[in-house]
Design a binder for these strands. Structure first.
Lengths: 249, 249
DNA sequence: CGCTATTTTGAGATGGCTCAAGCTATGTGG
DNA sequence: CCACATAGCTTGAGCCATCTCAAAATAGCG
């Protein structure tokens, strides 16, 4: 009963990168061990410090992975989009989640008990290899963001964050590319290591330059190449605050 | 011949976390597929952008993992110590190394061709699981450092970096805990996302406060709890530059 | 239609960066 | 063995990108 429902509701397990290249019989094993979990918008799959017991793969909705320190300062580490997994490894060995996972939308996920996932990976080495590749990609991305945070100015980091969001959650509209998420100034600040005030000023500047259109928790990119120019260093154009950069001699 | 030499020179493969809990026969397979590579102090196992073809586990010496951007600004992402692996995953699927690996000492490593390691992991799922756990720990550590970089002051980040180094490369001496590495102010700056000048001023301050003794590429911790107090927030004591913090009303 | 969360904006403070010099180990070649 | 060269380190002065704090404007929502 449960199994047949799952088969119907999960038509495309092969399209989930974690399960790429698995044989039909292996997919069946994975599917049969899965259960489902839905979390309402704003709800949490887990909080930082919870006992890590469940692995997830998102089917619909988005989930943000955050970390918070003792003083309540929070950073947004990652936005999980459909097809992606999160908390794939910590539950294998128990311990605690080092981050929190909060649903940005109403989100639905496949879930596996950590022990179950561990035995699946032992039985299906391709699954472990897939997880390894995905985790490696995440590490790689975070390394780059770490370097950016250490070496680059706020405006550039915000531009990169917005472009990344456009890739992950962008939707073409007549206005331009809409970031299809509730995205406050505070959120943007937590993604880029700055303050909500600075984020606001930067967006105001971009809006005046015609690069974006903004609203309450809303952002539309009008001239993506303008943001790219800020994110990369192509033309040192359109600085948002402070004076124009002096010309190189 | 080669095999028997390896058996002699690698007495303790079981003590390497990547190979923990493997059976003797599995260890043999791993060992037989390994070759060795030595790199002189200052040399590179690979540079950023090189084709990723080899996985490594360090036997002796230390290796630092760095990333550099187009403008030549560099960050130190990790210090690999004996027993630890690096570049474990990227070589499995080809592509490029996203970071560089530079020997701090004369360093010796076990090395496996990426294809070879891939097939070992497919054959020995425990190996893939071990790699997954190690990679996850690295991701976790980097996430914390990312948050620290985004939310904390330079002095605290430097204190944390020094304490981390003490754990990884500390050696008890009569003077105190010596960081047993050539460690320049520039290095410290690249580990903490600051400049060599600021790092220098901070160390000067700590030296005047009796927390450390410094020298050319040398650092000895005299009062570790003093550094911990800075790294955590226990007593807001001994600020190094600027004035003393005002008292809370 | 009032409440509340979000955003904007100003004014001021400052932590840390930049640049410029000079200083000091360390090691090197004469 | 010494004087010079070099790489690392310190320090001062000035600046400025960004943070802080405060307040007002705005926009959804119930």
């Amino acid at each position: 009963m449960k199994e047949s429902i799952d088969r119907i509701l999960i038509p495309d397990l092969t399209r989930i990168p974690l399960f790429a290249h698995l044989r039909a019989e292996q997919l069946d094993a994975v599917r049969e061990a899965a259960h489902r979990r839905s979390v309402a918008s704003g709800g949490f799959f887990f909080h930082q410090g919870d006992v890590a017991n469940t692995c997830y793969v998102i089917l619909t909705g988005r989930v943000r992975i955050t970390q918070i320190d003792a003083d309540g300062r929070q950073v947004i580490l990652h936005l999980v989009t459909p097809g992606e997994g999160f908390a794939l490894v910590a539950p294998l060995s128990g311990g605690e989640y080092g981050v929190a996972a909060e649903a940005v939308d109403e989100a639905e996920a496949l879930a596996w008990d950590g022990e179950t996932m561990r035995s699946l990976m032992l039985r299906i080495p391709e699954l472990a290899l897939n997880a390894l590749g995905l985790l490696s990609a995440r590490l790689h991305e975070l390394q780059e963001r770490y370097r950016e945070l250490a070496t680059e100015r706020v405006e550039r980091r915000v531009a990169r964050a917005v472009l990344r969001l456009a890739r992950q959650a962008g939707r073409r509209t007549e206005e331009g590319i809409l970031i299809d998420l509730p995205l406050s100034r505070q959120d943007l600040a937590e993604m880029t290591g700055t303050t909500l005030y600075t984020a606001s000023r930067i967006l105001t500047g971009w809006e005046q330059a015609g690069l974006v259109t903004t609203g309450r928790e809303r952002l539309v990119i009008r001239r993506g190449h303008g943001l790219v120019a800020i994110a990369e260093d192509l033309p040192p154009r359109t600085p948002v605050h402070g004076n124009a950069a002096p010309l190189e001699p």
